[in-house]
């Protein structure tokens, strides 16, 4: 697919994803910036919550359908829907049509939404025709492919193409890059020992690259790998790929202490005085 000729500035609805919304808002702002830089008008539908994947993968099809219906209703009027996640993107693109298979009222709507929904880096390249971003970052990075991006959506080259355009950034590939990090949604808490074995391998492959930073397009994987690297006392930083592509690396890497005054608060003003808790000075010490 190339840039739609009649869509110089399409309206894109950002599907924020619950993890970005709740845990890492920086990724949301980075996604908005990347989309706007690509010429899109970005809207953030207010009533969005979750894509329904936890229910779907836990066998609660009824709840999953309920959530999917509300997502379809809220997002179907936009030109495109973009998610900074292969996992949530994959849920809408691959599994919504499956959820409503044979449903006269909803199947066509689910398929129409699926056809307009994209993972962020894939949207920038495959739909908007971008090949580069105008950013610099002097760092050696490695990229972890999330299973859903890689296998459900076929996203592999797109983030690498964009990362290679970041001035000063060197990309080093992970060994066994196609292997799951062991997150798996509820899997990581239902089978913690197996999940730990998997993420331990991933963390050691990441360290073996010698890169300073690990990037990926899904917060689930990122939290899992970052959590393991932190527990291991690793110096490697972990960020969502959108943060680097948008040049928004001022916020601390995932799981690193915020600098004094950096806690974003409601209203958007970055003032430590209105932060929910006092931030102790000299926050470098982290319990191992």
């Amino acid at each position: 697919m190339t840039k739609a000729a009649d869509q110089e500035s399409p309206t894109v609805a950002l599907f924020v994803t619950c993890l970005v919304d709740l845990f890492r808002p920086t990724v949301g702002f980075a996604a908005v910036k990347l989309l706007e830089d690509a010429g899109c008008r970005v809207e953030v539908p207010a009533a969005q919550t979750c894509c329904g994947q936890p229910a779907f993968n836990s066998g609660d099809r009824k709840s999953a359908r309920g959530i999917a219906k509300s997502v379809i209703k809220k997002f179907e009027s936009f030109d495109y829907v973009v998610a900074p996640s292969g996992s949530c993107g994959g849920m809408i693109i691959k599994h919504y049509p499956e959820l409503f298979e044979g449903d006269e009222k909803w199947e066509a709507r689910a398929e129409a939404l699926a056809a307009r929904t994209h993972e962020l880096t894939s949207f920038l390249i495959d739909v908007m025709g971008r090949r580069a971003v105008d950013t610099r970052l002097s760092a050696t990075c490695t990229y972890h492919d999330s299973c859903s991006s890689l296998r459900e959506l076929g996203v592999k080259e797109q983030p690498r193409t964009l990362l290679n355009s970041v001035f000063g950034l060197e990309l080093k590939e992970l060994e066994q890059t196609e292997v799951c990090c062991g997150f798996g949604g509820t899997f990581c808490v239902k089978y913690p020992e197996i999940s730990n074995a998997m993420v331990s391998k991933k963390a050691s492959h990441a360290e073996a690259t010698g890169a300073e930073m690990l990037l990926a397009g899904d917060l689930g994987c990122l939290f899992n790998i970052a959590g393991k690297l932190l527990r291991n006392g690793s110096k490697m930083d972990v960020r969502h790929v959108a943060e680097v592509l948008a040049g928004m690396t001022d916020t601390p890497p995932i799981g690193r202490p915020p600098r004094r005054g950096d806690i974003p608060v409601e209203g958007g003003a970055k003032k430590a005085s209105s932060a929910p808790t006092a931030i102790p000075a000299g926050h470098a010490a982290r319990d191992a």
Partner: peptide, 30 residues
């Protein structure tokens, strides 16, 4: 407490037994 991570979190014992839990930044994106 400004460390960027949670060593323990409710319902997440399986997670925190083996890894740190990155803490939320604060206010939600929305």
């Amino acid at each position: 407490r400004g460390t960027g991570v949670l060593q323990k979190a409710p319902l997440a014992g399986g997670w925190t037994a083996h890894r740190d839990m990155p803490a939320p930044e604060g206010a939600t994106f929305q």
